[in-house]
């Protein structure tokens, strides 16, 4: 490493992730100081249910299991999140606490964007904020469909 650090081109950029394709460069630059990279070993816990949702995570590669715990029962994976996908919206919606555990199923690399600065950026640039919400809504819609499928238990004839 040199005194000035790695050249900027070496740093993975947020707009490498499909979730942020098409966002204004200005908006992404505003987020940059809040972005970090995370690497998880297989089985490592990213966060636990009920803890503050302090970041928005975007999976670059690997796989994360979202798990629910019921008292006395074994944990149940309700969804896996893989490359090009994102994890949840609890960081956006009060009370800003995770509704499930997130655990790496294999070695996983993520972008983490701090929730506070991300929410501030959304407020400061409503058009980009709206775009972000529109990207996030299909994630929510899919989770709802999934819940419907699980409740209806559709594979039973």
């Amino acid at each position: 490493m040199t005194a000035t650090g790695s050249p900027p081109s070496d740093r993975p950029r947020l707009d490498d992730h499909p979730f942020f394709h098409g966002f204004e460069p200005e908006f992404l630059r505003r987020l940059e100081p809040a972005v970090s990279e995370r690497t998880l070993d297989p089985d490592a816990i990213l966060f636990r249910e009920g803890t503050p949702a302090r970041a928005f995570y975007l999976v670059r590669d690997g796989k994360i299991a979202l798990e629910l715990h019921s008292p006395g029962g074994p944990p149940l994976t309700i969804q896996t999140v893989g490359p090009r996908e994102v994890i949840g919206w609890s960081w956006l919606v009060p009370p800003h606490r995770w509704r499930f555990d997130a655990r790496a199923l294999k070695a996983t690399r993520l972008f983490a964007i701090e929730a506070g600065p991300l929410r501030a950026a959304i407020d400061a640039e409503p058009l980009q904020g709206l775009r972000l919400l529109r990207q996030l809504l299909p994630v929510l819609a899919e989770r709802l469909e999934m819940a419907r499928v699980q409740v209806l238990d559709v594979h039973r004839r």
Partner: peptide
């Protein structure tokens, strides 16, 4: 699969979520 325990290392989710891959 729609839901799984810890002994499953594959995907959990709707078949439509697999289409982009």
């Amino acid at each position: 699969v729609d839901a799984a325990g810890r002994d499953w290392y594959g995907d959990v989710g709707l078949v439509t979520a697999r289409l982009p891959d």
